[in-house]
Measured scan of single mutants.
Amino acid sequence: KHCVKCNKAITSGGITYQDQPWHADCFVCVTCSKKLAGQRFTAVEDQYYCVDCYKN
């Protein structure tokens, strides 16, 4: 599998969101770069925000 963000191979520790593979380090808030894996977040038009950034 290849990460949908960076297009590099996922060798271990990847996550899946909406049936797409991601590196955990690539699945981050677009505003603050906080890792979103296992966290609550909001998706708006294929942009992902942590709860704090989305509220602001």
Results as ranks from 00 to 15, higher is better:
Lys1Ser: 03
His2Ala: 08
Cys3Ile: 00
Cys3Glu: 04
Cys3Trp: 00
Val4Cys: 08
Val4Gly: 05
Lys5Arg: 15
Lys5Val: 10
Cys6Leu: 01
Asn7Tyr: 08
Lys8Ile: 09
Lys8Tyr: 14
Lys8Cys: 08
Lys8Ser: 13
Ala9Val: 14
Ala9Leu: 11
Ile10Thr: 06
Ile10Gln: 04
Ile10Pro: 04
Ile10Tyr: 05
Thr11Asn: 02
Thr11Pro: 02
Ser12Tyr: 06
Gly13Phe: 03
Gly13Thr: 07
Gly14Cys: 12
Gly14Trp: 05
Ile15Asn: 03
Ile15Phe: 07
Ile15Cys: 07
Ile15His: 15
Ile15Gln: 10
Ile15Asp: 08
Thr16Glu: 02
Tyr17His: 14
Tyr17Leu: 07
Tyr17Gly: 13
Tyr17Asp: 07
Gln18Met: 06
Gln18Lys: 10
Gln18Ser: 11
Asp19Gly: 12
Asp19Ala: 05
Asp19Pro: 06
Gln20Ile: 11
Gln20His: 13
Gln20Arg: 08
Gln20Leu: 12
Pro21Trp: 04
Pro21Val: 08
Pro21Ile: 03
Trp22Leu: 12
His23Arg: 01
Ala24Gln: 03
Ala24His: 11
Cys26Gly: 01
Cys26Asn: 01
Phe27Val: 04
Phe27Trp: 11
Phe27Ser: 04
Phe27Leu: 09
Val28His: 11
Val28Glu: 10
Cys29Val: 00
Cys29Tyr: 00
Cys29His: 02
Cys29Pro: 00
Cys29Lys: 00
Cys29Gln: 01
Val30Leu: 14
Val30Trp: 13
Val30Ala: 10
Thr31Arg: 07
Thr31Met: 09
Cys32Arg: 00
Cys32His: 02
Ser33Asp: 14
Lys34Trp: 03
Lys35Ser: 08
Lys35Trp: 07
Lys35Val: 06
Leu36Gly: 05
Ala37Cys: 07
Ala37Phe: 15
Gly38Asp: 10
Gly38Trp: 05
Gly38Pro: 12
Gly38Tyr: 05
Phe41Pro: 14
Phe41Gln: 14
Phe41Asp: 02
Phe41Gly: 09
Thr42Arg: 12
Thr42Pro: 04
Ala43Phe: 14
Ala43Lys: 09
Ala43Met: 11
Ala43Leu: 07
Val44Tyr: 12
Val44Trp: 05
Glu45Lys: 10
Glu45Ser: 13
Glu45Phe: 05
Glu45Leu: 08
Asp46Val: 03
Asp46Thr: 04
Asp46Trp: 04
Asp46Glu: 04
Gln47Tyr: 08
Gln47Trp: 08
Tyr48His: 12
Tyr48Phe: 08
Tyr49Arg: 09
Tyr49Ala: 07
Tyr49Asn: 02
Tyr49Lys: 08
Tyr49Asp: 09
Cys50Gln: 01
Cys50Ser: 01
Val51Arg: 13
Val51Phe: 10
Asp52Gly: 09
Cys53Val: 01
Cys53Leu: 00
Cys53Gln: 02
Cys53Ala: 00
Cys53Arg: 00
Lys55Gln: 03
Lys55Gly: 15
